[in-house]
Design a protein around this nucleic acid. Structure first.
Lengths: 326, 326
DNA sequence: CTGAAAGCGCTTACAG
DNA sequence: CTGAAAGCGCTTACAG
């Protein structure tokens, strides 16, 4: 039903080969012929079938991306960075999410989807790393975004978790805070260990509550700490969501931020500007991470060797009112 | 290099036809043969090439999605709804963004990408509607998400903008507010006209400021209104971002929310829970919209007739402290 | 229950 | 500068 290259060829009175050549501007073609072919293409509204092109060329000019839930507050930025980069290179982006746990990963792997893309971008695969590694070993180019501490055998891009946390600690220290409460993410994440280490090296404390990156866990951590009656003068939360929870708990308890207690988060999600007071936080360049990861994958597909060291992008301390400049 | 159906056939001592049959569980196959083939598939790690399958079958089992910037606060929810639905049906999702304006739409259209998908999901195409309509007329199934007032010739899913705004007005009225300031989005959006109308029918006012859905525009609208000295006792913002701006401006000016001025937003983005005070808002079921739109497209691809009326999902008033129950 | 062969819509040496 | 033909990896009537 749709118009094919054969239709164009017939209409223009040339061979399919010639049509293909003008489309891909490959090899010499008579200027007159080329114009005529182009006119026919336009008038017929011809668009090459990507399936056929991919089959013939042996590549799909598409990259896949496997993501955690898209409702995570920083996913939009990463995704935007990836899409921009991929699109600018004339590639397509095939999106997968592993919401439904291991089952959906199986699905993902064995689906026709495999080989629908030339390379794969992965964010925080959790229980997926084994599968991904297997695919990588079979020859699928893979780049990991925001490695959380599993050091995979493929390239990855990360941020300076340790140094970022250290900068938060230095900031609090400079503001005269000496008894911080740390609200971590799940301990098995590599980034959590790094942030903990970076912070503690600068500003040691034994007030450490394990959270899970949710607003609720931040709120609970502060409530429990207040209940113990043990003094603290600041909070360092491992992400902005739990920092927002901490802010809320402090306000409910009648503590003033930052006068009584300063609060620093991590991520700089859009919400961080809008909490009360606005949140001082360690910014992760999520969009840039998406761009870099996509760029690395594309370069690899283009034949460049993959870097064997993880690419590490710098964090930046964003100072707002929850922990102002001293 | 990768293993093909021919490799499997050879290894299992059968024809490609038979392999294809066991993969697609089509036609009768001897149980023994089937098991053997499956073993070979597993041991070789064979995965069909989606390009070849699509070419042979004439469909790609992939849907495309054209989106505005992914950093918009409610995009994650829509996208998640779409991905879940599409994945559950065994389809892939190809993501496109029209960041770079008309040029990127051209690109999008004429790219190999066209025909890489069987159907297209579109959010708020702005200047793209013409192109999309043309593609639709050529036979591409299209579903529009969150129609903003261009009533296209293809199916769409929307929310009850008018009734949602009316519910906000009734809520303010019940709380004894009679002088609202309305902060709209761009006037040429259909949803803006609907929200304006729905609100004004219940609670007329001549205090109307045109905004553009940004935090800044909400802040400025309130600042200007305060500068005029004209009294107002509430704000109805056409989205949560500008409502957040309004909250900030009111706080800076020393006005108490909700005591002096009640504020109601629209959308219920994740941030709405975390403003100070938390925002009363008209919730749009973004995730459900994504699910429904994807479901409609899939059903259409499956042969069902497209509904000729837009599907309209109900909004819901979420009451928080910025405009509490009377 | 199974296979040989044609065909899906392209690209790419190979000839000319 | 141009074309005929083979081939990419599948599926699908058609025969048996």
């Amino acid at each position: 039903m749709p118009v094919t290259i054969a239709d164009v060829a017939r209409e223009a009175g040339v061979s399919k080969t010639t049509v293909s050549r003008v489309i891909n501007t490959k090899g010499e073609v008579d200027v007159g012929t080329a114009t005529r072919v182009r006119e026919v293409i336009a008038s017929l509204g011809y668009v090459p079938s990507s399936g056929a092109v991919g089959l013939a060329r042996g590549s799909s000019r598409t990259v896949g991306m496997l993501t955690p839930p898209l409702t995570w507050p920083w996913m939009g930025a990463v995704l935007q960075g990836v899409v921009d980069t991929v699109e600018a290179a004339g590639y397509g982006l095939l999106l997968f999410t592993c919401n439904r746990g291991a089952e959906s990963v199986e699905h993902f792997t064995s689906q026709v989807s495999a080989r629908a893309f030339d390379g794969l971008l992965v964010i925080e695969p959790e229980n997926t790393l084994g599968t991904i590694t297997a695919m990588h070993r079979k020859g699928l180019p893979v780049v990991l975004i925001d490695d959380r501490g599993h050091h995979p055998e493929f390239p990855s891009v990360a941020t300076t978790n340790r140094e970022g946390a250290a900068s938060a600690a230095r900031h609090l220290l400079a503001a005269g805070r000496s008894r911080p409460l740390i609200i971590t993410g799940r301990r098995h994440f590599g980034c959590v260990a790094d942030r903990l280490k970076g912070f503690l090296e600068v500003l040691p404390t034994e007030l450490i509550a394990e959270g899970d990156f949710t607003e609720l866990s931040g709120r609970l951590a502060v409530e429990r700490q207040l209940a113990t009656g043990r003094h603290f003068d600041s909070v360092f939360a491992h992400n902005d969501l739990s920092a927002a929870g901490a802010l809320r708990a402090l306000r409910s308890a009648g503590r003033s931020v930052p006068d009584d207690i300063a609060v620093v988060g991590f991520d700089d999600i859009p919400m961080a500007e809008h909490t009360e007071p606005p949140l001082t936080t360690v910014r992760q360049p999520m969009r840039e991470m998406g761009e870099r990861a996509a760029g690395m994958l594309l370069a690899h597909l283009g034949g460049e060797a993959a870097p064997d060291e993880p690419v590490v992008l710098p964090t930046e301390l964003i100072v707002r009112r929850s922990a102002p400049m001293p």
